[in-house]
Write a protein that binds this DNA or RNA. Structure first.
Length: 497
RNA sequence: GGGCCGUUAGCUCAAUUGGCAGAGCAACUGACUCUUAAUCAGUAGGUUGAAGGUUCGAUUCCUUCACGGCCCA
């Protein structure tokens, strides 16, 4: 617990004094009639005049509630600003109007208290729409001082640990999270309008699959079995296609037991969707349409400024095979890409450390990450990923060394990953087995082969394509947020000591 | 895991070469009926992230640790 400093002691003392005056400190009998934004945009706002006596009966009375953010007290009258979910408004409290008793209560109110007012709108000398309070009510007494009004709260550690304070004093943070909520709502709307069903699949899985990552492990006592928090919903969503649902999606959390950074949080939000009888080409078109529409809805324009870079999301978007990108963006000699030994050699020359079993496909994707990825500012689809690095993707018919897969990059970051699904159970089983060999002695990744998923494929997964979109990164782009922690409302930090 | 940077009043930040820890806002007391970063007069508020070391003297230099940030893996 905090040592009670002077400020906290003073607040507790005021609370006690109010209680002495029979004031309820945590009342729940005040019903606002309007949000602040509704008051400010009401008919009364247009009619408001400096002197209420000019038209005392024509204007409506409002009841509003909110938190005190600023307080300017005079001897017999005061101005304050309160904030609710919709905005801020000034309130004028006069002793002459609210009466001696209420004004003496009011004098014990502090910045941070949650309060209610009833009154009519008028305009001050300086033209600000203001509620002239004729009744006042304490709703919740605050026992802690808020950060300073001018600079707000800037200490990032405190902003993340005490997000509630960040939200009270930094309006742009509220705006970012409102946008996040709207983005997710619009994605649901877009997919629902196209016949996709939103489903829920297990967060706790006996065999973590669908991606290569370290899972979080937990234990079910009654069943006496280890379970893993999912690293991806993929294998369950495809089981639903086996079952006969043709278009499904899920927006939910994935968990990966790996490092934290400005782009990684241990739990993050993914949109995954699967469509029977579609190919990765169909999903490229769908993705382009979905994200450009989303951008226009959220941003009002196809141009987005991200960290001072201007990004143009107008379709059509650039499409490269990974080889084309390595040549045209990465500046690699085309001859090298056709020679497996030369590709591995080049990767090593560039300082890339490859596992002993890694082949040219792994070398290519590593070179891509090193030389190309950060240069893809405007939306760019990269296709024809090596089969070696795409264990769940269908092989390309013309060239079985690559898969029918794409990734989407914007501002140098991977936003989406999609492919035509591998539905041959024999091929799938071989690739799973190869992954388990390649994981080496790191048993935390791919602890066992998912036999049930193979069995499902044996019943028959219809030809299909599926895609995952990292929602946090998409929100970062559309809210100009430099860190994933700015778009995750309660990001993970080490425990406070 | 590695490198660099940061941690001072409730908040935002200062503190000269190692020499009395300060300001603004917030708070408290008083004045004030149109203020809006209100104003005026006064007051209080500190284990300088923690522990150790060097020194006559450490916010400042050194070591370790904690937490955070950025970059890298």
């Amino acid at each position: 617990m905090d040592q009670l400093n002077q400020l906290l002691v003073q607040r507790r003392k005021k609370a006690a004094e109010l209680a002495e005056m029979d004031v309820e400190l945590y009342a729940n009998d005040f019903k606002p009639t309007h949000h602040i934004s509704e008051v400010l945009s009401s008919g009364s706002a247009n009619e408001a005049v400096a002197n209420l006596d000019d038209a005392p009966n024509v204007r409506a009375s409002f009841k509003v509630a909110g938190r005190i953010l600023a307080l300017r007290k005079f001897g017999k009258a005061s101005f304050l600003h309160i904030q609710d979910d919709s905005g801020r408004i000034q309130v004028y409290v006069k002793k002459e109007i609210v009466g001696e008793e209420f004004y003496s209560q009011f004098k014990k109110w502090d910045i941070g208290d949650i309060v209610g007012f009833k009154g009519k709108l008028f305009k001050t000398k300086t033209g600000e729409l203001t509620i002239l309070a004729d009744a006042i009510k304490l709703i919740t007494k605050s026992l802690r001082p808020l950060p300073e009004k001018f600079h707000g709260l800037t200490d990032v550690e405190m902003r993340y640990r005490q997000r509630y304070v960040d939200l009270i004093v930094n309006p742009e943070v509220r705006e970012t999270f409102r946008k996040r909520i709207e983005i997710i709502r619009l994605l649901r709307e877009f997919l629902s309008n196209r016949g996709f069903l939103e489903v829920e699949t297990p967060m706790m899985q006996a065999v973590p699959g669908g991606a290569t990552a370290k899972p979080f492990k937990t234990h079910h006592k009654a069943l006496d079995m280890d379970l893993y928090l999912r690293i991806a919903p993929e294998l369950y969503l495809k089981r639903l296609l086996v079952g006969g649902f043709e278009k499904v999606f899920e927006i939910n959390r994935n968990f990966r037991n790996e490092g934290l950074s400005t782009r990684h949080n241990p739990e993050f939000t993914m949109l995954e969707f699967y469509q029977a009888y579609a190919t990765y080409q169909d999903l490229m078109d769908l993705t382009e349409e979905m994200i450009s529409w989303l951008t226009a809805e959220i941003n009002g324009s196809m141009e987005v400024t991200y960290q001072e870079q201007v990004v143009d999301l107008s379709p059509p978007w650039k499409r490269y095979t990974i080889d084309e990108a390595l040549i045209e963006v990465g500046g690699i000699d085309p001859g090298v890409l056709d020679d497996p030994k030369a590709v591995i050699q080049l990767a090593k020359e560039r300082g890339i450390e490859l596992e002993p079993l890694a082949g040219p496909g792994k070398a290519k994707t590593e070179l891509f990450e090193l030389l190309v990825e950060e240069k893809l500012i405007n939306p760019t689809f990269i296709t024809a990923y090596p089969t070696e690095v795409s264990p769940l993707a269908r092989r390309n018919e013309a060239d079985p060394a690559v898969t029918d897969r794409f990734e989407l990059f914007i501002t140098g970051r991977e936003i989406a990953n999609a492919f035509s699904e591998l539905n041959d159970p024999v091929d799938q089983k071989k690739r799973f087995e190869k992954q388990i060999v390649e994981r080496g002695d790191d048993e935390e990744i791919h602890p066992v082969l998912d036999e049930d998923y193979i069995r499902a494929l044996e019943y028959g997964l219809p030809a299909a394509a599926g895609e995952g979109i990292g929602i946090d990164r998409l929100v970062m782009l559309l809210t100009d947020s430099p860190s994933i922690r700015d778009v995750i409302i309660f990001p993970h930090l080490k425990a406070e000591k």
